[in-house]
């Protein structure tokens, strides 16, 4: 059951991320907007992260058949997704995310050489959680200004992804419990909520025009 849900989640995540990433890219090509460029990187990364994990499950299911996915594949997928979540948060102007001091920068890199892939996975899950919560709050706040109902759905989607990420991270305390399955279900709901308003944007008559991307 867990294996199936994990497969569905990663496939849905890959497709939703790819769809939003492609729409952002078309928008970037048509308008040259840096915001849409950042959204393109964000959603292509999220999509790629889900794809890596999904591929890991597929390889495990059909070729290796050991009963569990290789831990490093899961970690690589989560790291790539975290890059995507960072770019969503970055689009909301995180300007002081990285410390300015060279000393703190070097110290900040140090843990990556001291921890195992299991610990790395937890670190990146918690970073994803923080970035997703930040993105959800900023998107919700933007609703006050633009009264766009789609923003509520996106904020809800990011919030559900954050909650799912939190439960996924917390489930390592209770490895065999239902927590992980709930986490997967919540994350799938979050991805769907994210896609609903985006799917309503009319794109029928928009086409690529190479001359416009110099603006």
């Amino acid at each position: 059951m867990e294996f199936l849900l994990e497969n569905i989640l990663n496939l849905v995540g890959f497709l939703v991320g790819l769809a939003i990433g492609l729409m952002s890219y078309i928008g970037f090509r048509n308008t040259g907007s840096p915001t849409l460029f950042r959204l393109t990187i964000a959603f292509v990364s999220i999509s790629l992260g889900f794809f890596v994990i999904w591929s890991g499950y597929m390889v495990e299911d059909f070729i290796i058949k050991s009963g569990s996915i290789e831990r490093w594949i899961q970690t690589v997928g989560i790291v790539i997704q975290t890059v995507g979540y960072f770019f969503i948060a970055f689009s909301h102007s995180i300007k002081s995310f990285f410390p300015k001091s060279n000393y703190f920068r070097s110290v900040g890199i140090l843990p990556f050489f001291l921890v195992s892939t299991v610990q790395l996975e937890h670190i990146f899950r918690s970073v994803s959680f923080i970035l997703l919560v930040y993105g959800a709050i900023e998107t919700m706040l933007s609703y006050r200004d633009n009264k766009n109902k789609g923003a509520i759905s996106v904020a809800l989607g990011l919030g559900l992804l954050a909650f799912g990420e939190f439960l996924g991270w917390y489930s390592f305390v209770f490895p065999e419990s239902i927590l992980y399955t709930i986490s997967m279900t919540i994350k799938i709901a979050g991805l769907i909520a994210l896609f609903i308003p985006v799917s309503k944007v009319p794109l029928k008559k928009i086409k690529f025009d190479d001359d416009l991307d110099k603006i």
Binding site: G27, S33, L36, N148
Partner: peptide
Amino acid sequence: SFTKFADNFGLNI
């Protein structure tokens, strides 16, 4: 169109 798209994410293009 893409202003609406970005609005959904609470962003300005």
